[in-house]
């Protein structure tokens, strides 16, 4: 298996009884790539994410995540990935510093390292003055940026983002994407799921799931051209509708 892939799956399948949630998924994500993973509700997105992050064991097929085997090395996978969701990411009733200490502590980072690194992160985010403020008092945009920084604090190879920028204003959203782009250029692989088709256009490549299968994969431009649509929204609607969507 080539070392250029952060994620490589072959015929990855997950069945729940008679129901096939993920049907023979074969794809790869390059290192340092921003990869968008789209699908309607119930298309199998969440199941795929759970398998890739080592939370769920596949029924059949193989996959390597950050060069670790999905069956045998799920604990190592967990150590080498980061996760951020819009629903839950930080504790509102802890300060910024306490949140960092807590999450970094989970990944077993030494106190010295946490101290050094949190200084860098806090300076980069320009949160020096707010360091000891409760996270709950921060504006949503800052919270999201902080959550992202904490998700990649332990230097994971891959970070999974679940609808990271819902509901923020367009400028803050760009600032968030700046962070993502910056990290990607430093070599981090970003795996993003979203409902928000606008957001998907920021990705380098996109995969669309429909009815448990991989329905399309490519750069936003390629997908738009091959479906002769002007936006990812239209592409998505065409693909998802084509698969007898209810």
């Amino acid at each position: 298996m080539s070392n250029n892939f952060a994620i490589k799956t072959i015929d990855l399948t997950k069945k729940f009884g008679n129901f096939t949630a993920c049907d023979n998924l074969t794809f790869e994500v390059h290192k340092g790539e921003i990869f968008g993973f789209l699908g309607a509700n119930g298309a199998g997105k969440t199941t795929a994410m759970k398998m890739l992050s080592g939370l769920l064991s596949p029924t059949s097929g193989t996959a390597k995540i950050a060069d670790y085997d999905i069956y045998k090395e799920s604990e190592k996978i967990k150590k080498n990935i980061g996760y951020m969701s819009q629903k839950f990411s930080l504790y509102d009733d802890l300060t910024i510093q306490e949140n960092i200490n807590f999450f970094a502590g989970i990944y077993g980072l030494s106190n010295k390292l946490i101290k050094e690194k949190s200084e860098v992160v806090i300076n980069e985010l320009d949160l020096k003055k707010q360091q000891n403020k409760l996270v709950g008092s921060l504006p949503l945009g800052w919270k999201q940026k902080l959550a992202f920084s904490i998700a990649i604090f332990h230097n994971p190879a891959i970070v999974f983002l679940d609808e990271p920028t819902g509901g923020v204003d367009p400028v803050t959203r760009r600032q968030f994407w700046d962070l993502i782009y910056q990290s990607a250029e430093r070599g981090l692989t970003v795996f993003l799921t979203t409902h928000y088709m606008d957001e998907s256009e920021y990705c380098n490549r996109i995969a669309i799931m429909a009815n448990g299968k991989l329905a399309a994969i490519g750069t936003p431009k390629e997908l738009k051209e091959s479906n002769s649509s002007s936006s990812m929204n239209d592409v998505f609607i065409q693909i998802a509708r084509g698969k007898n969507y209810v």
Binding site: P170, V171, R174, W177, D178, Y181, Q182, A184, E185, D198, E201, Y202, N204, T219, P220, K221, M232
Partner: peptide, 25 residues
């Protein structure tokens, strides 16, 4: 470009920039 972040960083230092933002691809 495939170097979105590098270009954004550069343009922010460019004297004639009014605004520059990532917009999709």
């Amino acid at each position: 470009s495939n170097k979105v972040y590098t270009i954004l960083e550069l343009l922010r230092t460019y004297q004639n920039t009014y605004s520059c933002y990532a917009f999709g691809d």
